[in-house]
Computed example of a mutant assay.
Amino acid sequence: MRLVLASNSPRRRQLLSDLGLPYEIRLQEVDESFPAHLVRAEVAEYLAAHKAEAYRAALAPDEVVLTADTIVCLDDDVLNKPADAAEAIQMLTRLQGRVHDVYTGVCLLTGEGQRVVFSDQTRVYFRALSPAEIEFYVQQYKPFDKAGAYGAQDWIGMVAVTRLEGSYFNVMGLPVHRVWEELVKLGFGLNEVPSLAAV
Rank of each mutant, 00 (worst) to 15 (best):
G189M: 06
V106T: 03
E45K: 06
L196M: 12
Q96T: 12
T93D: 13
E182P: 01
Q90F: 13
S195Q: 14
A85D: 15
K142T: 13
V138E: 07
D120Q: 11
G105C: 04
A132S: 15
V72N: 03
L183C: 09
L186A: 08
M158T: 10
V39S: 15
L5N: 06
T162N: 11
V72L: 05
A52N: 10
Q96W: 03
P82E: 05
T162V: 12
N170F: 05
A128R: 15
V171D: 01
K51C: 04
I134H: 01
P61Y: 11
L174A: 00
L108W: 03
A83V: 13
Q14M: 13
R127W: 08
V99P: 03
A128E: 15
E133G: 11
A147W: 01
D145L: 08
V176F: 11
A197C: 01
C73S: 11
C73Q: 02
Q96V: 02
P82V: 07
N191R: 14
L196I: 00
D31I: 01
R40W: 00
V176C: 12
L108S: 01
V193N: 09
V184D: 08
R2D: 08
R40C: 06
Y141H: 15
A197V: 00
Y137N: 07
V184S: 09
D69N: 06
D62C: 08
L74F: 12
L164R: 03
E182L: 06
M91H: 10
L19A: 13
G20T: 01
L66A: 02
G189F: 09
V159D: 10
E87V: 10
Y137M: 09
G97V: 04
N8H: 07
F118D: 02
N170A: 04
Y23L: 04
K185C: 10
N170V: 01
S9D: 05
L109Y: 04
D18Y: 13
Q140C: 14
